[in-house]
């Protein structure tokens, strides 16, 4: 056990020392190796269940709730938004390849033309904009929240496949990576302090989830009915460490999501799930 933690510690040191040097794939494999050494016997695919992956009892209760989850009405409202044509008669499905199926797991993507990261939610908003509709706010549960919850369900189970190609894309990835490791707020916490260094430990009666597997299962419905998109969750994390949060849909979060999603490459996308 001690040896295992020592190994993990070495891996952490390696992270710290390699802020600029590591390639995304080296990052991902180092994260995965660290966690798998710390949590032997847990299949990588189970990381999509976050804190539930550590406890058979918690996972069983999760499965009981997911068998008929209380948030089905929200997903249905998202489907209504998705199916309702814009005023010009076109639909979201017409904006997206294959009607939006098996797509969300390839976002965020880097757009070389714009030199910025494009998230799946931005893609939905661009479809609105291109069809003459006002864009949705990224933190509005009733619109973008339920819309993306439904739209992502069309990619449910697809393997995450985030690409970071070229120096310009890598620069955005690195920006997200720096935010992940940067200590912020009055509590002086970085994302990595909890979700890398202390994943699997219990804090305030919560088992901390590992960074690998997080970005694949949003939106979540906390308590079964309170929708949180990934960016809304980032905002909440920042509030919890008493930092001034970036807004949902901000470039800082887009870049963070780019890095964060890459860590989950190869894992099956989940849309949408219950969290406590």
């Amino acid at each position: 056990m001690n040896a295992r933690f020592a190994l993990a510690g070495c891996a952490l040191l390696a992270f710290g020392a390699s802020v600029a040097a590591a390639s995304p794939e080296e990052d991902r494999t180092a994260f995965v190796r660290t966690f798998q050494q710390r949590f032997p016997g847990i299949a990588l695919d189970d990381y999509v269940h976050g804190g539930f992956m550590f406890s058979r009892a918690s996972r069983s209760h999760y499965d009981d709730i997911m068998a008929f989850p209380p948030f089905l009405g929200d997903i249905e409202r998202g489907k209504v938004l998705w199916d309702t044509p814009f005023r010009n008669g076109r639909t979201y499905a017409e904006c997206l390849p294959d009607g939006g199926r098996n797509l969300a797991g390839t976002y965020p993507r880097f757009s070389a033309a714009e030199n910025r990261v494009i998230t799946f939610e931005m893609l939905l908003n661009r479809c609105r904009r291109d069809n003459g509709e006002a864009e949705y706010r990224y933190d509005d549960r009733a619109t973008m929240g339920v819309l993306t919850a439904y739209a992502r369900s069309l990619s449910d189970g697809m393997r995450m496949d985030i690409k970071v190609d070229g120096a310009a894309a890598l620069a955005k990835y690195e920006e997200g990576r720096r935010l992940f490791f940067r200590r912020i707020g009055q509590m002086n916490f970085a994302c990595s302090n909890c979700h890398l260094d202390n994943a699997g430990k219990v804090m305030r009666m919560e088992t901390i989830s590992p960074a690998v597997g997080q970005a694949v299962h949003f939106p979540v419905f906390r308590g079964g009915d309170e929708l949180y998109t990934l960016h809304m969750r980032y905002t909440r994390c920042m509030m919890q460490v008493r930092a001034q949060p970036f807004p949902a849909g901000s470039e800082a979060f887009n870049n963070l999501e780019y890095f964060h999603s890459y860590l989950s490459n190869g894992l099956p996308l989940q849309a949408s799930v219950y969290r406590r």
């Binding site: 406890s55 009892a57 209760h61 999760y62 709730i65 308590g223 079964g224 406590r276």
Partner: peptide
Amino acid sequence: APDIAENSAIVHIE
């Protein structure tokens, strides 16, 4: 019933 309720507002009982 669960050993630990993940959320006290939604405890699945059979």
